[in-house]
Simulated scan of single mutants.
Amino acid sequence: MRYGDSGMKKKVVAAVAAVFAGGILLGCSSDADVVSENLSKESDQFKIDRRVVFFNGITDKYLLSIEGRCSIKDENNQLEVTCKTGENEYKKHFLGLSDNVSYFVEQLEAVEVSRYHYKVIFKPEAIIPDVDRP
């Protein structure tokens, strides 16, 4: 059986899904943990409006504000903010952090997520290569 056959792809997808689901079930133990994880996943899918504000902790002045359906990733001294600006349009901002520059992220509206069910977003095209493509 070739790797590109659909039977093999289904087995790989099932195995990866089981690993992800098992990891999430072990990692979240309380209702708050489940809700927090689900809110983070919704934000990373650009479904939640946020406001990201950068401020100088010494002068108490705002330096920058970004609003929209944005996903954030804190990379130590740099915050990466990716925002969806259209149907298939995105903008990514890199903002440096220091001992006097910090940020906070505000969720602009309440959204409904389950406290009983974990949300797993599985995109097989991101992990299974298209081996039939030249």
Rank of each mutant, 00 (worst) to 15 (best):
D5C: 01
G7D: 09
G7K: 10
M8N: 06
M8P: 00
M8W: 00
K9Y: 04
K9M: 03
K10V: 06
K10P: 00
V12H: 03
V12Q: 02
V13F: 13
A15I: 10
A15S: 15
V16T: 07
V16H: 06
G22M: 01
G22A: 09
G22K: 09
L26S: 13
C28L: 11
S30I: 01
S30A: 02
D31C: 01
A32M: 06
S36R: 15
E37K: 12
S43R: 14
Q45E: 13
F46S: 07
F46I: 06
K47Y: 02
I48Y: 06
D49N: 14
R51M: 10
V52C: 05
V52L: 11
V52T: 05
V53T: 14
F54D: 03
F54R: 00
F54E: 01
F55M: 03
F55K: 03
F55G: 00
F55I: 01
N56L: 04
G57M: 15
I58Q: 14
D60N: 10
K61G: 01
L63W: 02
L64K: 13
S65L: 00
I66G: 01
G68L: 03
C70G: 00
C70I: 08
C70P: 01
I72E: 14
I72F: 10
I72A: 11
D74R: 11
D74T: 11
E75L: 14
N76H: 12
N76M: 09
N76R: 14
N76F: 11
N76T: 12
N77L: 05
L79C: 05
E80C: 11
V81N: 05
T82N: 12
K84G: 04
K84S: 10
T85R: 08
G86T: 06
E87K: 12
H93I: 07
H93L: 09
L95M: 15
L97Y: 08
L97K: 09
D99T: 12
Y103C: 03
Y103H: 05
Y103T: 02
Q107H: 03
Q107M: 13
Q107F: 01
E109C: 00
E109I: 01
A110V: 05
A110L: 06
A110P: 02
H117K: 12
Y118V: 11
Y118S: 08
V120H: 07
I121C: 11
F122Y: 10
P124N: 07
A126M: 11
I127P: 01
V131R: 04
R133G: 02
R133L: 10
R133K: 14
P134C: 03
P134D: 09
